[in-house]
Amino acid sequence: MSMSSRRVIEVALTLLAPAILLVAWELISRSGRVNQVFWPPPSSLWDTAVKMVRNDGLFTDIRVSLVRIVGGFLLGSIPGIALGLAMGLSWPVRVFMMPIATALYAIPKIALLPLVIIALGTGETAKWAIVAISIFFLVALNTMSGVLTLDPVYRDVAHNFQASRTQLFFGVALPGSMPAIFTGLRLALGFSLIVIVGTEFLSPSQGIGALIWKSYSILAIKKMYVGLILTAILGWLLILALDLVERLVVPWNRSTS
């Protein structure tokens, strides 16, 4: 099989699963066995979405959520990578940070929202902060494991060529942990979306989460569905964007090339 026909099949299979889901939903909805108020056919949602763009500023909600996700993601993941590298390279740092990291890693992050609101209020800063806090240790722990599982022979090579500590860090530890770092970032991006939608439920002013929750509260069920579908599409696009960044940053990784 040639590579291009394999690619065609890949794309077809990728699109097939959501297509089956939508068709099944459409058929069930139109069968008359379910209440269309709560289970509207997906084909009817397009008109709703168009109206929402015109009248309700749907794009503003998307933009607001996107900025919160990306902002919080960067705010949490960059220091997370730095801490993870330090924990991987230095055992005192690792031993010192491990109890906090594992304890906070296990807390459902949305449970921290009241604390964040007390500390930072209900503005954008708090939204960024809750996302950043949620992913910080996740990224740090993945990065640390990337450093720890790096084959010790690479350090030996660097030492044999008389690498300084800085050269060891930037030439070996950082590039060598990149695949593990991206595994952490991919998980963190998913978490960011979950946490921001949850946060917007609880503190609804703007954003896709707020849209879903407010629509549900006034039984505007079709609008709620538009919000849900948009959340799914947003998550998919964000992961796609991260994959693209990974291909640029880690072109040598067998699994990405």
Binding site: N160, V172, W252
Partner: peptide, 16 residues
């Protein structure tokens, strides 16, 4: 100056 050739996979996979 000595240079060591190691057992197994010592070539850095992240460098060409």
């Amino acid at each position: 100056r000595n240079a060591m050739v190691f057992q197994g996979r010592s070539v850095f996979p992240w460098l060409s």
